[in-house]
């Protein structure tokens, strides 16, 4: 039943009516929350590249300010992190749907550069030369203005998209011991 209405919900994510979009987002969030433990296969079939692109359009709108409320924005990020944790296929689908652009924008406030230049990394004159090509001040200002929950959920999503830690280390032994 969900599979038959899923395209309708996905289309609703692209509507301009704010209230309608909010409810469509809640549908997506609740489906992910209920399926990520019970049925990963169903979740994989529902959270495909098309849905992720639709969600991506909401998180990173072309017009600038997002259509959805900050709370829903945070819940969507959390739902994406949950689905990435549940299935490696969804992790790959998220990466293929360019979720990295959204995460970059959330953490820095700007979109990533379209041209690839490895020399840019860490060589920004105005930065402290710590890690990225962006000035640290830009990152700091963006972090100060972003809601703390959004930053934390974005970092959780980054962590879920990363490959797992290698097995056999002290950390993973501990995590296994405590069933974490």
């Amino acid at each position: 039943m969900i599979r038959s209405v899923w395209p309708i919900i996905r289309n609703c994510l692209a509507y301009s009516d704010q209230r309608l979009v909010e409810f469509a987002c809640l549908c997506v969030i609740r489906v992910i929350d209920s399926y990520y433990r019970a049925s990963t296969e169903n979740l994989e079939s529902l959270v495909d590249v098309d849905l992720i692109r639709a969600v991506n359009q909401l998180l990173l709108p072309a017009g600038g300010s997002p259509l959805i409320a900050p709370n829903t924005y945070t819940l969507l990020l959390r739902a994406l992190a949950t689905s990435a944790r549940a299935s490696p296929k969804i992790t790959v689908a998220l990466l293929e749907a360019d979720i990295v652009d959204t995460l970059y924008q959330i953490l820095t406030g700007v979109l990533p550069s379209t041209h690839e230049s490895s020399e840019e990394q860490g060589s920004a004159m105005e930065g402290q030369g710590l890690g990225g090509g962006l000035a640290d001040m830009t990152v700091m200002e963006n972090l100060a203005h972003r809601p703390k929950d959004q930053v934390e959920e974005a970092l959780s999503l980054v962590s879920e998209l990363m490959p797992p830690l290698p097995k056999g280390t002290l950390i993973t032994s501990y995590l296994h011991f405590h069933n974490l």
Binding site: V100, L103, L107, G127, L130, G131, G132, D136, V151, L161
Partner: peptide
Amino acid sequence: FMQLIVPILIDVYAA
């Protein structure tokens, strides 16, 4: 993903 995110993670950590 790594090329874009890792330097930003370092900046976020520092900031």
